[in-house]
Design a protein around this nucleic acid. Structure first.
Ligand SMILES: [Mn+2]
Ligand SMILES: [Mn+2]
Ligand SMILES: [Zn+2]
Ligand SMILES: [Zn+2]
Lengths: 140, 140
DNA sequence: AATTATTTTAGAACAATTCTACACTGGGCT
DNA sequence: AGCCCAGTGTAGAATTGTTCTAAAATAATT
């Protein structure tokens, strides 16, 4: 679904900053970014945008359901362009985050939700040490 | 294992504050606490301890392996007296955290760790809405 | 007792995020 | 075109959990 449609569906006006930031994020590739990453991406792309607007826009995208907030680290919030149910491989030293497709893991024995409560999400985080893909290998 | 033994094993001197804070935490009940919770518990128990010491002590306990750090929320770090492999039921509105025994969940289809990387932990968080146990029910 | 190492602490510093309060835009209306 | 106004964008201040600093207190060692 094109960004403009998604914004409209979510009741967000298609403003220049939203289109610019959305364009950086929703290019078909699944991304895991921090607000700072987005600010850097914008700067490199020649988009002038304040950090406050980056935060506002990311939060609006989350509220609109076109971005997902991922919490893995106390001092860094990740935003995930993959809003489907899925899990994560987290490389703690580098901060790299990789998707694990939701249907590639099977979780058995989930407790039943008690009365008055609902399961909103089941999230699996595989915390890794070491490096995600051999960085700095001979094939460079 | 008694606290004194654990501290010694971890190379931590059995100082008054460590004994006091450890005594509050390791009483046989599994607890999920924040630094602020611990400061409050200490105050109520008549233990005079600075917040800096609470943080120092909790971090030392984590480094010593007798406490586990749990990250579920950007602005609140939980410390868990249950250091075994297990999972969590997190009630987002109240902040309540309940243990799910590690062997009550079965996770199938875990990807193999790539070369140069190791799986440090597999953590499942079941995010719940609603209330953990009917609080404010007629039976009060 | 003197010396040295460790612990404890108050308060400053830090950093990610949010808030505030004002300036700017842009589309609807005349 | 010119006005209006709700919505948008922003700088900079505020917030807040945590860490750092640097000094005081305490404990161990000689
Ligand atoms: Mn923060
Ligand atoms: Mn914080
Ligand atoms: Zn993802
Ligand atoms: Zn636990």
């Amino acid at each position: 679904m094109p960004l403009l449609t998604q914004l409209q569906t979510a009741g967000l006006r298609a403003t220049p900053k939203r289109i610019a930031i959305g364009g950086l994020l929703f290019d078909g590739v699944d991304r895991h970014v921090t607000a700072d990453d987005v600010a850097d991406m914008a700067r490199k792309a020649g988009i002038k945008v304040s950090l406050a607007t980056v935060y506002n826009t990311l939060n609006q995208f989350v509220a609109a359901g076109i971005l997902k907030r991922i919490i893995l680290d106390t001092d860094r919030t990740y935003f995930d362009t993959n809003v489907s149910d899925h899990h994560h491989l987290f490389y703690e030293t580098s901060g790299d985050l990789l998707d694990v497709p939701g249907d590639s893991l099977r979780i058995e024995g989930l407790p039943a939700a008690p009365e008055g409560a609902r399961v909103r999400a089941v999230e699996v985080v595989i915390r890794m040490s070491g490096t995600p893909v051999s960085i700095g290998s001979t094939a460079g």
